[in-house]
């Protein structure tokens, strides 16, 4: 199934509602192998739900998710699910590092727990991954609470890439960071995605981040993808929704419920 024409990741007709609120209304998102797609959209527009459905943390009400052509709903056994999850890496919005573990144990978590890599080797690989995101070996034995927000994001990125995933998801990677740290994270994301040659899907409302890390950008509004195109075209998309969002204008077709 691994031909180059098959999208590496595809959401097809995905629908999700919470009570009466329809968050995703038949969304189709194919992502080609090795491409980086950024999904933009306002708060509450279903960006996080999209990524959670894509990675299997949430089940859609309708529609399918395909990874490398395989319908993920057909994965039944725990072992197959674990193998499937091993293809993913994810950087969470708040890094989601485990408080009770040291930084190296966090970074090496998949290696030591799921892949059964010996602790010594796992630690070495974790320290290497930390170095790649600009963190010195001295942080390896610290706990997450002892790191700044930016350093936690870097450690989270190291954890996402250490097992060399095929698809990486980035959930609001620059939220809560100052502009300089945000740019550092953006650069690291671009560097790591290129190094691994993997497919990337990011969600953000930070346009600087979207421009930097995306090959393509798609905009989610009212449960549908209202525009999708190359990142370079975002400033002249000809789409009123995108223009309003990119320029941060209160006036336009996007209505904010007050």
């Amino acid at each position: 199934m691994s031909d180059t024409k098959t999208p590496m990741l595809e959401l097809r007709g995905v629908r999700k509602a919470f009570g009466d609120k329809v968050v995703l209304d038949g969304v189709d998102i194919p992502v080609a192998r090795g491409r980086s797609l950024v999904i933009i959209g306002g708060s509450g527009q279903g960006k996080s739900v999209t990524i959670k459905i894509a990675i299997g943390l949430m089940a859609p009400d309708a529609g399918q998710v395909f990874v490398d052509g395989q319908d993920t709903a057909l994965i039944r056994s725990a072992a197959d699910r674990a193998r499937h999850n091993a293809r993913f890496g994810m950087l969470f919005q708040g890094a989601a590092l485990f408080d009770s573990l040291t930084i190296w144990e966090n970074v090496a978590f998949r290696l030591t727990n799921a892949d059964k890599v010996p602790r010594k080797e796992a630690r070495e690989r974790a320290v290497e991954a930390l170095a790649r995101v600009g963190l010195p070996a001295s942080v390896a034995n610290l706990y997450p609470i002892e790191l700044s927000g930016g350093m936690q994001k870097r450690a989270g990125l190291a954890r996402a890439v250490v097992a060399q995933p095929e698809i990486i998801f980035f959930d609001e990677p620059t939220t809560g960071l100052d502009p300089i740290n945000a740019d550092v994270i953006n650069n690291l994301i671009v560097e790591q995605v290129k190094r691994l040659g993997c497919t990337a899907v990011s969600i953000t409302h930070d346009m600087a981040s979207a421009r930097k890390i995306g090959d393509e950008i798609a905009m989610l509004y009212n449960g549908k993808i209202v525009w999708r195109g190359p990142a370079a075209d975002i400033d002249h998309s000809g789409n009123a929704y995108v223009d309003q969002f990119v320029h941060g204008r209160a006036d336009g077709p996007i209505k904010i419920e007050v």
Binding site: I55, L57, N85, A86, M90, F92, G94, A96, N113
Partner: peptide, 22 residues
Amino acid sequence: GAMRATEQIDALNTLSTDPFRY
């Protein structure tokens, strides 16, 4: 509960570790 609120349980799932076992 704090792990749920800070997405650490979601992180366990993405790291191929069943939160019920861990």
